[in-house]
Simulated assay, not measured.
Amino acid sequence: MGNRQSKLSQEELNQLQKDTHFDKKELQQWYKGFLKDCPSGMLTKEEFQKIYKQFFPFGDPTSFADYVFNVFDSDKSGSIDFKEFICALSVTSRGKMEDKLDWAFQLYDIDGDGEISYNEMLQIVEAIYKMVGLPLFLAVHMHRLTRFKVGSMVKLPADEDTPEKRVRKIFKMMDKDENGSLDMAEFKEGSKRDETIVSALSLYDGLV
C-alpha cells in the first residue's frame, strides 16, 4: 500500500474491514490522515518518533516509540504501511482482551524468543518512565487530562518509584515458576490481575 494512491480500492477496503474492527468510513478517514502525514504511503521510524514527541513534550519518548514501531512493523521492513498501521491500531484500541494481550506480549518480548526476560521488561518500563516521568498506571489514567503537567502533584508509591522496583513487583506477581522470565501463559494470567499492563495499550490509541 505504499503506492501513494489517493483512495483505498474497494478490494482493499473489503479486506481491511475483515482484518480490523473499523468500518468503511473510518478506514477511509484513517487512510486520508495517514497519507497527509506520510505522503509516501510509508511511515518511517523517525516520523513515528515525531508523533510521540508531540504527545510527550516533557519527556523523551524516543526509546518507547522505537519498541512500539517494531511491533507495528509486522513484516520488519523498516517502515510501516497503512495496512500494518491500521491493523495494529485496531488491536490496541478495539481488540478483544486476548488479542491485546498477544500484542502487548510482542512489545515486551523484544528479541521475539517467546519469553519476556527481566531485562526486556526493564527496558520497556525504563522507556515508559523516561517518556512520561510517571509510572505506567498513572500515565495511562492521567495523561489526556493533564497533558503531563502533574509531576509535582503526584507522589509515587515507594515500591514503584523506579523502573527497577516496578519490574521487580511485576515479576514477583507474574513469574510463578521463578525462572527469571515470563512465558505467554504467565504474562496473560498476571496481566489480567494487574490492569495497568493491559490499560497501557490505551496510550497507543490517539498517539498514532
Rank of each mutant, 00 (worst) to 15 (best):
F148T: 06
Q29H: 11
S74Y: 07
L201W: 07
F64Y: 15
N70V: 02
V125N: 08
Y67Q: 12
G59S: 08
K32Y: 04
E164Y: 10
R168S: 05
L182F: 10
V132Q: 09
L8V: 03
L27V: 01
S152Y: 07
L8I: 06
L16F: 11
P61A: 14
D19M: 09
A139L: 10
F64V: 10
D159M: 06
D175K: 02
F82R: 00
A200E: 03
G133M: 03
G95S: 11
Q29L: 11
K130S: 13
Q15T: 13
H21Q: 12
Q5W: 02
F171R: 06
L182M: 08
P163N: 07
D37I: 00
I110G: 02
L122D: 06
Q123T: 14
Y108R: 01
S152A: 14
M121H: 00
E98Q: 13
I124A: 08
L136E: 12
G206L: 01
V167D: 00
F58A: 07
A158W: 03
H143S: 10
M1F: 10
Y118S: 05
P57A: 09
K192M: 15
D109S: 09
Q17F: 04
S202T: 05
S6M: 11
E47P: 01
V154Y: 04
G151M: 05
L8N: 02
F148Q: 12
E115S: 11
F48K: 06
G59D: 11
Q28Y: 04
I110N: 02
P57S: 09
K83Y: 12
G112P: 07
I51M: 15
F82V: 00
E164D: 06
S191Y: 02
G151D: 11
Q17E: 15
S79D: 12
S9L: 03
R4Q: 14
P135M: 12
Y67V: 10
A88T: 14
D159I: 08
M1C: 08
L13I: 02
D161M: 09
C87Q: 15
Y31S: 01
Y204G: 00
Q5L: 07
D60H: 07
E178C: 06
E46L: 09
F72G: 01
I128M: 12
R4F: 01
S181F: 13
S77D: 10
